[in-house]
């Protein structure tokens, strides 16, 4: 078995607002092996971004990790002080944020912002750091990096800024890269370029990647493992083939059914998931998906189901998988495309 780089155990994160405690993440566990690309999918408010911020320990007041453990390379980082985290963040774990327009500092040049990380973590001289910054820009595919290194963010387009963000994140060759919706703000053509870049970098540097997104197409493209989140919990976890071809949770099925398929000729009416996500100030007692689930039973609203192991890598949290549950006929939403070879 390959080496575990990250292991999250029963992580709970809450935000203490004046309205009450918002339980954004309510006990999730997963692990990531070296060189693996994991996708976290879910809609807004499912807790996927909070999960990534918790791993980075970048939660801001009033957010707090309530309980749980995060093992990074075998070491628990939950109780690490901010000072210790400074050596890990940017160096061993790096992050690419969603919005490249707001996550770069507008008053520093792109080069300065890449050099800052290199000087801080690798202790290179300014001159050497600049050379490295130029190399990084070249690596992420920015044309004429020698000149571009002294540009300001406003002189870069959206796609180029996201590449610059990737250059910053990768400049210290992190072991783990967390990309939080890295392509959501970009056009499909630029998204395609950025995804290719991430695939290349993974090959070259053997970085483990956590990709957070709501776009199932994106995860199908590059992830080997997928975690589906809803209402602050992991609903289903499995390899990308498990999730796309053998979904076991009604929420995963619902997601697959609600997106139009470009590659299949037929034009069918979309099947939406009715209703809206739960309020996490007062999370439902049972399974959070009960209110929107077409197969909900009495027990679903009373008790949260436990995980059922389907095979080695595939597990789901649903009462329907319990051995005493009725045998229901379900439309899994799986449509296999035709592969032209």
């Amino acid at each position: 078995m390959s080496e575990k780089i990250l292991e999250v155990k029963n992580l709970k994160t809450s935000f203490y607002t004046h309205l009450g405690e918002v339980q954004a993440v309510r006990g999730i566990s997963f692990s990531l092996n070296k060189g693996e690309v994991m996708g976290i999918v879910g809609e807004s408010g499912s807790g996927k971004s909070v999960t990534s911020l918790s791993i980075m320990k970048l939660l801001q007041y009033p957010g707090e990790i309530k309980s749980g453990d995060i093992f990074f390379k075998g070491e628990n980082i939950v109780n690490k002080k901010n000072k210790e985290m400074l050596n890990i963040r940017g160096n061993e774990i790096a992050m690419i944020f969603q919005d490249p327009m707001t996550s770069l500092n507008p008053v520093y040049t792109i080069g300065d912002q890449i050099m800052e990380v290199i000087i801080r973590h690798q202790g290179l001289s300014k001159k050497k750091a600049k050379e490295k910054a130029i190399d990084m820009l070249r690596l992420v595919g920015i044309p004429s990096p020698e000149e571009r290194v002294s540009n300001y963010p406003y002189e870069f387009s959206g796609g180029m800024r996201q590449r610059a963000m990737a250059a910053i994140a990768l400049s210290c060759e992190p072991d783990l890269l967390i990309a939080d919706e890295p392509t959501t703000a970009l056009d499909v053509t630029i998204q395609d370029q950025i995804l290719k870049l991430m695939k290349d970098l993974k090959e070259k540097l053997d970085t483990s990647i956590i990709l957070i997104t709501h776009d199932l197409g994106v995860v199908a493209d590059i992830c080997t493992k997928i975690v589906v989140m809803y209402g602050g919990l992991v609903m289903e976890e499995g390899t990308s083939k498990d999730i796309f071809y053998n979904p076991k949770h009604p929420y995963t099925m619902g997601l697959l059914k609600s997106i139009p398929r470009l590659d299949l000729g037929e034009k069918k009416r979309l099947i939406p998931i009715t209703g809206t996500p739960p309020d996490l100030i007062k999370p439902p007692m049972g399974c959070p998906f009960t209110a929107r689930c077409p197969y909900a039973m009495k027990i679903c609203s009373l008790h949260a189901p436990k995980y059922t192991k389907i095979d080695e890598n595939h597990k789901a949290m649903c009462w329907l998988l319990h051995k005493q549950s009725p045998n229901m006929k379900m439309d899994t939403g799986v449509k296999r495309g035709v592969i032209n070879e």
Binding site: V188, Q191, D192, K196, D215, A220, D263, G337, I339, E341
Partner: peptide, 26 residues
């Protein structure tokens, strides 16, 4: 053609096997 091939398809087998035309530049 390029625009169509840039759209990710939510089907791992299909997306891995299809050829894509990446648009260079902006």
């Amino acid at each position: 053609k390029a625009l169509l091939s840039a759209i990710p398809i939510p089907d791992p087998d299909v997306t891995h096997k299809r050829e894509s035309v990446t648009l260079e530049g902006e």
